[in-house]
């Protein structure tokens, strides 16, 4: 399928496709296809094979895990990007359409083949992905720290300080 230049221009504004020339993007999305699902439909389930990366073109999608909503994604955001990391990746969460949704489906096999061929577009996407992931990891770390009481505990050092007030 060929996608419009207009859409390509939109897509390269999404962080993980940042830095792609229009020509590279066109090549990258060469075998992508559009798909539509109705409101309430499931795009993929936790544990499914991660066979494609999805770009939301229209509508809103909820990402949930074990019934807990992790994120709500809208137009021109990406989901299922972990599937690019390699074969055998399974979906780590469930994606459900909150409205009628139109997505662009990029088969991960295709991307992996491009990577094998040292395709510049695919390499740029993966480099971008690494950046996105590291930001996410940072956010999770910060959250972990805040969950454990806001600041790092120093119980042994605190005890040592208490003892200095009991000098004998």
């Amino acid at each position: 399928m060929s996608i419009t230049t207009q859409l390509v221009k939109k897509l390269v504004q999404i962080p993980i496709f940042g830095g792609l020339t229009v020509g590279e993007a066109a090549a990258f999305f060469e075998v992508a296809h559009e798909a539509s699902v109705g409101k309430g439909a499931t795009l993929f389930r936790e544990g499914d094979d991660g066979d494609a990366l999805l770009v939301i073109l229209e509508g809103e999608v909820a990402v949930t895990r074990k019934g807990i909503e992790l994120a709500r994604l809208g137009k021109h955001t990406v989901l299922g990007e972990m599937s690019l990391m390699g074969e055998g990746e399974v979906r780590s969460a469930t994606a459900t359409a909150l409205t009628d949704v139109k997505v662009l489906n990029v088969p991960s096999k295709r991307v992996q083949k491009m990577l094998k061929d040292d395709d510049v577009a695919a390499l740029k996407v993966v480099a971008n992905l690494a950046q996105v992931m590291s930001k996410r990891l940072q956010a999770i770390n910060e959250r972990l720290v805040s969950m454990s009481g806001g600041k790092k505990k120093e119980e042994l050092a605190d005890f040592g300080r208490i003892l200095t007030t009991w000098q004998f």
């Binding site: 042994l156 050092a157 005890f159 040592g160 003892l163 009991w166 004998f168």
Partner: peptide, 8 residues
């Protein structure tokens, strides 16, 4: 205090 200090 003594045991604590050794521990710290």
């Amino acid at each position: 205090g003594r045991v604590g200090k050794a521990t710290v």
